[in-house]
């Protein structure tokens, strides 16, 4: 554990809880992509199956359980409790275009051919692109609520902080996992356009709207 990893995890946690609290408080999931949330639920489920097979630390296990519960809680709010507020007309990204290639890739580029390893790799590839339906939705509606922008910023920062963590770990522990590093870089790049808008608009108190 290092400071970059810890800040990354906290940023990730903040993002997930921010989204959950926003939906709960406003009793609405307008502007949120249910498809991205489905993808994140698949990501956490396939990655954290190791809760049953390997123990790292109390911290890791608790975080995994929180991520899983918050993710399924978000799906429950979006597709059941506040379903009428779900803006499905604008959530039109075809997620099979992400689910299938990520699955194929996880069989092609993987460290070892075991069920857990392939599922873990799949979760890494899918996470890299899971935000695309949400970014697509923002581009279709041309705007995002401020809380949604904070959510996206925290979620994007998490992987960027993990990149610093991997650099740090490479020098201090000789740790190098190219699958997760390259996927993490792709994931962070997807947010770059959004980061720019966030810094130039939202941080100056303006609403995020596209020209």
């Amino acid at each position: 554990m290092n400071i970059f990893r810890l800040c990354g995890d906290l940023s990730h946690l903040l993002a997930i809880l921010l989204l959950l609290v926003k939906i709960w408080k406003t009793r609405s999931c307008a502007g949120i992509s249910g498809k991205s949330q489905i993808l994140f639920a698949i990501v956490y489920t396939t990655r954290y199956l190791d809760l049953f097979t390997s123990f790292v630390s109390i911290y890791n296990s608790v975080m995994k359980i929180v991520f899983l519960s918050a993710s399924y809680g978000t799906l429950y709010l979006m597709f059941y409790k506040f379903k009428p507020t779900y803006d499905h007309n604008h959530d039109s990204f075809r997620i099979l275009y992400l689910i299938v290639p990520a699955l194929v890739l996880s069989f092609v580029i993987v460290h070892a051919y075991t069920l857990m390893e392939v599922l873990w790799t799949y979760s890494i590839y899918l996470e890299a692109v899971a935000i695309m339906p949400q970014l697509f939705m923002v581009s279709r509606t041309g705007e995002a609520e401020t809380i949604t922008s904070h959510y996206l910023f925290a979620l994007g920062s998490y992987r960027a902080l993990y990149i610093l963590n991997w650099i740090y770990r490479y020098y201090t522990e000789d740790f190098l996992d190219l699958i997760v590093i390259i996927a993490g870089i792709v994931q962070t790049i997807l947010y770059c356009d959004f980061f720019y808008l966030y810094i130039t608009k939202v941080l100056k108190g303006k609403r995020l709207s596209l020209p």
């Binding site: 190791d50 790292v56 995994k64 000789d174 996992d177 997760v180």
Partner: peptide, 10 residues
């Protein structure tokens, strides 16, 4: 790099 047995990241 080290082989990464037991993934310790989230």
């Amino acid at each position: 790099g080290k082989p990464k047995e037991g993934k310790d990241e989230l």
